[in-house]
């Protein structure tokens, strides 16, 4: 099962500059996995992200919606406090499955 998870590592300021490329990558990855007949499960390592704005959130929202369309989902892990606060304030901590460690986030795909 673990072999069918795609992992994305983000770092620094996750804003409009990074968001566009990330959005494209997420969409293509989901379609590729779906084309190979596997669930589009995506793991996003947020541990190096120091800041996220609405464009960054938007890319992740597009990612999770796309993954869900194709029978998978998107898990986030390792959120720094500043980023965690943004997720809480925007209620997105309830829309995204968020985990502390990579191990937890990976295992959660099986449950």
């Amino acid at each position: 099962m673990i072999g069918t998870v795609s992992k994305l590592e983000l770092d620094g300021r996750f804003d409009a500059y990074q968001a566009q490329g990330t959005k494209v990558w997420l969409k293509e990855e989901v379609e590729k996995m779906s084309g190979q007949g596997v669930k589009a499960n995506i793991l996003v390592d947020m541990s190096k992200v120091t800041f996220i704005d609405s464009a960054g959130l938007s890319a992740l929202v597009v990612g999770i919606k796309k993954a869900r369309e194709h029978g998978g989902t998107l898990h986030l892990f390792g959120l720094q406090q500043a980023v965690q606060i943004i997720f809480e304030l925007s209620w997105l901590d309830k829309a995204f499955p968020i985990y502390i460690t990579e191990d937890e986030a990976t295992k959660a795909f099986n449950s």
């Binding site: 959130l57 929202v61 919606k65 943004i86 809480e88 304030l89 925007s90 209620w91 997105l92 309830k94 829309a95």
Partner: peptide, 26 residues
């Protein structure tokens, strides 16, 4: 999902009111 929303009662300190639902379109 909107922020910041600030509530400041006349006698108290201003505070941020968190969202109570996800952003629209999610």
């Amino acid at each position: 999902g909107h922020s910041p929303v600030i509530y400041c009662p006349a006698g108290g300190n201003p505070e941020i009111l968190p969202a109570n639902g996800p952003a629209m379109g999610v």
